[in-house]
Amino acid sequence: MEPLSTPSGDFVEAAVRVVLTAADDAVDAEVGRAALLSACVGAVASGDRLVRQWRRVTGRPVTRLAPDPVTARAWAMTLSVRAELPEWAGEFSPLDLDAEENAHRAHLARSRGRAGVESALAGLAERAWAHAEAGNLTEARAAIDEWGHLARDVPDPDVATLAGCRPLARLLVGGALTVPAGWAEEYADALIAALHTRYPRDAAESSWAELIDEILLLRGGSDTAPPPASADEVAEAEHRLGIALPESYRTFLATCDGLPADVVFPRLLHVAELSPPAGPDGTVVISDPPVLRLRPATAEVLEEDPVFGLSVHRDIRAVLEQHRRLLEASL
Rank of each mutant, 00 (worst) to 15 (best):
P200W: 03
E247V: 14
A130E: 09
C165H: 02
V154E: 15
A299C: 14
T298E: 00
P296G: 02
D156H: 15
H196E: 11
L162D: 01
P200H: 04
I215K: 00
T251A: 09
C165Q: 09
E321C: 01
P246H: 04
E87R: 12
L292N: 06
G242N: 00
T71F: 04
G113L: 13
A299L: 09
L177I: 04
A203P: 10
V81K: 03
S330K: 14
W183S: 08
A34Y: 08
L95F: 03
R317Q: 08
D25Y: 13
D262A: 13
T6R: 15
P296I: 08
D96M: 01
S119Q: 13
V16S: 00
V31W: 02
A329V: 14
A237Q: 05
A254L: 12
A83V: 10
G182Q: 11
R324T: 03
S80C: 02
G47Q: 03
D145F: 11
G42Q: 05
C165M: 05
E126M: 12
T251L: 13
R127W: 07
E233M: 03
A130S: 07
A134G: 12
A74C: 02
L268I: 08
P167W: 09
R314M: 09
L4G: 15
T298Q: 08
T63F: 00
R110S: 14
R314G: 07
E87P: 12
D305G: 04
A299P: 11
E118N: 12
D305S: 10
A122W: 08
G42R: 07
A299G: 10
H149F: 07
R219C: 00
D281M: 11
G220N: 01
V70W: 04
D202S: 13
R17L: 02
R127Q: 11
E205Q: 01
R114C: 06
V57M: 07
H270V: 06
L171V: 08
W54H: 12
V51S: 01
A142Q: 12
P69G: 14
E2F: 10
A231E: 15
A272Y: 07
E133M: 00
S5V: 11
A143V: 09
A23G: 15
L124C: 05
G116Y: 06
R293C: 05
L245P: 06
R293A: 05
L36M: 02
W54E: 13
R55I: 09
S111N: 12
R82I: 04
T161N: 08
A278L: 05
A43E: 08
G42I: 11
E247L: 11
G174T: 15
C256K: 04
E30S: 13
L137F: 05
V62W: 06
P67A: 06
W75V: 03
C165P: 07
H239G: 03
T78A: 04
P296M: 07
E100H: 05
R201H: 05
D68T: 03
S287G: 04
I243D: 00
A299M: 13
